[in-house]
């Protein structure tokens, strides 16, 4: 498969302002490629939710500069691929994995139902997480989410999420 064109590559700490900067960069790049509003909004939504997930839920490894947040946006022939990684306490991985596996099993109608169940049932945490980000990404992109948890040490893992926004039939 032909290697895609890397539009954005970020490695390092992620502030709220930095997220805004990356979003603006993506918007202007996709406009330059003449992608229509539907694609731009799908990529935008997936990017906001994944970057805000890192911002709100990452567990920074004290005293280490390794395993910082990572984000890339790559334009392939038939899709825009988003990949994001962050360090995370291993005790959190079970619940996250369960949620990812659950959304991957659901179709569009199932995701709508699950979204409804969570939005009506779960409270927004002080960090601002509503438990909806992952479901929203799956709902908007309509593709299965790929993910890995790589061991860093006994306490931490490096979580990577790969999101695909298909371009077929959506290039408007």
């Amino acid at each position: 498969m032909e290697k895609g064109e890397v539009l954005i590559n970020h490695y390092g700490p992620l502030s709220y302002e930095e997220i805004g900067f990356l979003l603006n960069k993506m918007t202007s790049l996709l406009e330059r490629y003449n992608f229509g509003i539907t694609i731009r909004k799908k990529v935008y939504a997936a990017m906001v939710e994944s970057l805000e997930n890192i911002y709100k839920h990452q567990d920074v490894i004290k005293g280490s500069n390794n395993y910082q947040p990572k984000f890339s946006l790559v334009l392939e022939n038939n899709a825009v691929d988003l990949t994001c990684s962050n360090s995370l306490l291993k005790i959190k991985t079970k619940r996250l994995k369960e949620r990812l596996e659950k959304v991957n099993q659901l179709d569009k109608a199932g995701l709508r139902e699950f979204y409804k169940e969570v939005i009506l049932g779960e409270n927004v945490t002080q960090k601002g997480g509503a438990g909806l980000g992952i479901i929203n990404i799956a709902k908007v992109t309509e593709n299965k989410l790929e993910f890995t948890f790589d061991d860093i040490d006994e306490q931490y893992a490096y979580f990577t999420l790969r999101i695909k926004v298909s371009l077929q039939n959506l290039n408007n």
Binding site: Y44, I119, L120, V124, A130, N136
Partner: peptide, 12 residues
């Protein structure tokens, strides 16, 4: 024009 998922909870 756009709202994130945390906003959708409060809109509701």
């Amino acid at each position: 024009t756009y709202f994130n998922s945390a906003t959708s909870k409060f809109l509701l």
